[in-house]
Simulated assay, not measured.
Amino acid sequence: MGRTRAGLLDGAARTFAGYGLRGSTMQSVAAAAGVAKATLYNHFRTKEEVARALLAAELDRLSALAGELPPDAALRVLADEVAGHPVLRRLARDEPDVLTGLLAAAPERWAEHVSRLARALRVEPDAAELAARWLLGLVLQPGEPRIRRAGAARLAGLLAAS
């Protein structure tokens, strides 16, 4: 990803975390990124397109992070990341319908996400499907850190046994 695009997505993350998606504008995203609005429009046509690009970039980052760790540590880190992500927390609290729309994936996109998770965790696709659904649940309801981490350890044990 280019430096400009990365800066735009960083500005979007700060803006969306602070104001939500509905409360943000293309102008506020551009300002947070330190660029002119025209620069933002050179990369993205709509705020929703920015949000989807941010989500895709975060999925890439999390997949890379998980791939560097043993599966049990990867699940724990992924759980903490999705449970504590400032944009996801803001949307879950203030705009759950927007969050649900962003997270809903067509079957082929879901299969792609599950496949990436399977590679990162080094497990079979069926096991990755279970992990993906668990992580998706944490986006919506993160729970207590201690319980979430215990769940990650339990899930890692189940995946290892499969």
Rank of each mutant, 00 (worst) to 15 (best):
E95P: 00
G151N: 02
A106D: 02
D94M: 08
V87S: 01
A79P: 01
G101I: 15
V35I: 04
A160N: 01
G2N: 07
V114R: 05
D126Q: 08
T46Q: 06
A30F: 12
G20H: 09
L103Q: 04
Y41L: 15
L121H: 06
L102F: 07
E124I: 13
R90Y: 05
F44V: 08
L69T: 02
E95R: 05
L140W: 08
L78D: 01
L8N: 02
K47H: 09
R148F: 05
L102C: 10
A73S: 12
L69H: 03
R133N: 09
S28W: 14
G143P: 01
D126P: 02
T100K: 13
E144F: 06
R133Y: 11
G2A: 09
L102S: 02
G34P: 02
D80F: 14
V87E: 01
G20C: 13
H113T: 06
A127C: 07
P145D: 01
A38T: 09
L55C: 08
A6Q: 08
W110H: 09
A152G: 02
A38Q: 11
R122N: 00
F44E: 00
V50I: 11
G151A: 15
K47Q: 11
V29T: 07
G18C: 14
L102G: 01
Q141N: 11
V50Y: 04
G157C: 11
M1W: 13
R149M: 09
L62V: 06
A53K: 08
E129C: 14
P145Q: 05
A57H: 05
V77K: 10
V82G: 02
A152S: 04
H43T: 06
L21Y: 09
R116L: 14
W110A: 12
G18I: 15
R122G: 00
T25F: 15
R3A: 15
V87H: 05
R146D: 03
G67P: 03
T4V: 15
H85G: 00
G34W: 09
T39V: 11
L117P: 00
L130E: 03
E124V: 15
A132Y: 14
L102W: 07
T46E: 06
L136Q: 06
L65H: 01
D94L: 13
L158G: 07
A111N: 04
D94Q: 04
K47R: 15
P107C: 11
Y19W: 15
G151C: 08
R93C: 03
D80I: 12
W134I: 08
A105P: 00
L99D: 00
